[in-house]
């Protein structure tokens, strides 16, 4: 089909629409009476809530660390320190998302707006990666010198094995939970689902935007 044929076809489609398209004025008018915020603005409260809860939680943990510093076991301090650092990073991601929400303006050109929305959606993957990276901390925080002295070698080997396994798994997932792996079976099994689909679409869109910027 040639260019002029394409345009003519679209024109006939346009004519058909202009003759047969109807606006339900009552329903359209009802929309102007809704007391709703934009889709992105409505995401703000939950992000702010998550940031506040996160700040209270790490503040609480900071106080614990300060108070038990002198006598707590090194493994407990390392684990809780690791957890605090990663939680603070997650709070940072949420703050970044809040900034993006405030920067998005759907009146602006498509590419810049979509880039911000896609970055906003895809940044949630960082929260998941940081969550998995904490896995080993939960398996070693209770380790003390006394505990090891009172356990059988077999029990110790199981504990150490589980901790090493979790460390390996945590680091592996942190490294591999990337959009490039979104079509792999393990990824879909672990992270597939309704919540992830918009994020995958966002990642795909970021690739398109990057390509669009460089074309021409």
């Amino acid at each position: 089909m040639e260019e002029n044929q394409l345009l003519a076809l679209w024109e006939s489609y346009d004519r058909k629409l202009s003759q047969n398209l109807v606006l339900n004025r009552q329903n359209a008018e009802d929309i102007t009476k809704f007391k709703v915020k934009s889709l992105l603005s409505s995401m703000q409260p939950i992000k702010i809530f998550a940031i506040l809860v996160g700040i209270v939680w790490v503040g609480f943990l900071d106080v614990i660390v300060i108070n038990v510093w002198a006598y707590a076991s090194p493994m407990f301090l390392i684990s809780i320190g690791f957890h605090i650092v990663l939680t603070k990073l997650s709070i940072g991601v949420y703050i970044y998302q809040l900034v993006l929400i405030n920067l998005v303006d759907i009146n602006e050109p498509i590419l810049s707006t979509q880039e911000k929305i896609a970055k906003l959606k895809s940044s949630t993957i960082w929260i998941t990666r940081l969550l998995f990276l904490q896995l080993p901390a939960w398996t070693v925080f209770y380790w003390t010198k006394d505990l090891f002295q009172n356990l059988h070698a077999f029990q110790i080997s199981i504990m150490v094995g589980v901790a090493l396994g979790m460390a390996y798994l945590g680091i592996w997932l942190f490294k591999n939970i990337r959009f490039e792996n979104r079509d792999k079976k393990w990824f879909r099994f672990l992270l597939g689902g309704i919540e992830w689909d918009p994020m995958m679409k966002a990642a795909d869109l970021l690739e398109q935007i990057e390509k669009a910027k460089n074309e021409g």
Partner: peptide, 19 residues
């Protein structure tokens, strides 16, 4: 749930006539 009662009809719709 932003719009608790979605409209049963389309706001903009096409009547049946065809090309």
């Amino acid at each position: 749930g932003r719009i608790s009662q979605p409209f049963p009809e389309e706001i903009i719709y096409l009547t049946a006539e065809k090309l």
